[in-house]
């Protein structure tokens, strides 16, 4: 049975995949659906949702189209979330793998760095990083990745340590395989699946961290994000709660979708491990 078929057997995974595919399509289609700048003023301010079908979700304090902002915000949220997670996994898997292979002093040194990063809350780290260097998309991505790479690093190291002891790694040594080939051909591919299963949790965390940074006004000011929308709405929370609730719901649905997808991914990966 192939990987897709195994994935399809988990209902959580399928629901998550449907939600995520929908979101990605919306994000990709944003410039087609709303070709105008989402930050442009299109109507009277603080229009309630469903009052005008041209502006189905109403307008914000400045009279901007909430639906257009939401759709463009999906781009930012998904992009930042996925980019930050990819960066975190790449850094983490490399550091963890090197630590696990090398052992001894290299391992000790690298793992103390991991410890140091883990003692500081990831959000605080991102906050400090962005406020010092300044808010732009790549910096926000890097800032979030800096707080999230330690999990993959620990997991990759633990996997490598256990795989290093397997018979097939011994046999690779016995046939005279070069240590680097053993590391990258025999060990790494088998150490990756559990690290990949962690990706969903990291993407979801990254999306939330990005929203929190934007909420605090530390996001990229030229981009609409759901966090900045919630922050905008906060000032008029009593008179127009929908301005905070709508992007809030979008955030919940996205994070839930990512988690469910990750759940399905982990299950499909573990099924293969049991089989092999």
């Amino acid at each position: 049975m192939n990987f897709v078929a195994r994935f399809m057997r988990s209902p959580e995974g399928v629901i998550g995949a449907v939600v995520l595919i929908g979101l990605v399509l919306v994000a990709l289609a944003a410039p087609l659906l709303f070709p105008r700048d989402p930050l442009a003023i299109v109507g009277q301010p603080m229009l309630e949702p469903f009052a005008d079908w041209a502006l189905p979700l109403g307008t914000d304090r400045l009279g901007r189209n909430v639906l257009a902002e939401l759709v463009h915000g999906a781009r930012a949220s998904l992009l930042v979330g996925i980019a930050a997670a990819l960066a975190a996994m790449a850094i983490g898997a490399s550091v963890g793998t090197i630590a696990g292979f090398a052992g001894g002093f290299v391992d000790e040194a690298l793992m103390r760095v991991v410890d140091a990063f883990q003692t500081v809350p990831g959000f605080l780290l991102a906050l400090a990083f962005v406020s010092v260097i300044g808010a732009s998309m790549p910096i926000v991505v890097l800032a979030i990745a800096l707080g999230a790479w330690t999990g993959p690093a620990r997991l990759a190291r633990a996997e490598v340590l256990s795989i290093r002891e397997r018979d097939y790694v011994d046999w690779a040594r016995v046939i005279g395989m070069h240590p680097l080939e053993i590391a990258f051909r025999e060990i790494l591919p088998n150490a990756l699946p559990p690290v990949l299963a962690l990706s969903a949790v990291i993407v979801a965390g990254a999306i939330l961290t990005e929203a929190a940074l934007s909420f605090l006004g530390l996001g990229d000011p030229n981009i609409v994000t759901w966090g900045s929308m919630i922050a905008e709405g906060r000032a008029v929370l009593r008179s127009a709660p929908f301005l905070s609730i709508v992007p809030g719901i979008a955030l919940v649905v996205t994070v839930l979708g990512v988690y469910l997808f990750g759940e399905g991914l982990a299950e499909a990966l573990s099924r293969r491990r049991v089989r092999s």
């Binding site: 016995v174 005279g176 395989m177 092999s276």
Partner: peptide, 23 residues
């Protein structure tokens, strides 16, 4: 050492564990 390994080989007990699961 790697070059001498050409002349001394082994066979393990568990033929499944002895191979990379992807091989």
């Amino acid at each position: 050492l790697r070059s001498v390994r050409q002349r001394i080989q082994m066979v393990f007990q568990d033929p499944l564990a002895a191979f990379n699961p992807r091989a």
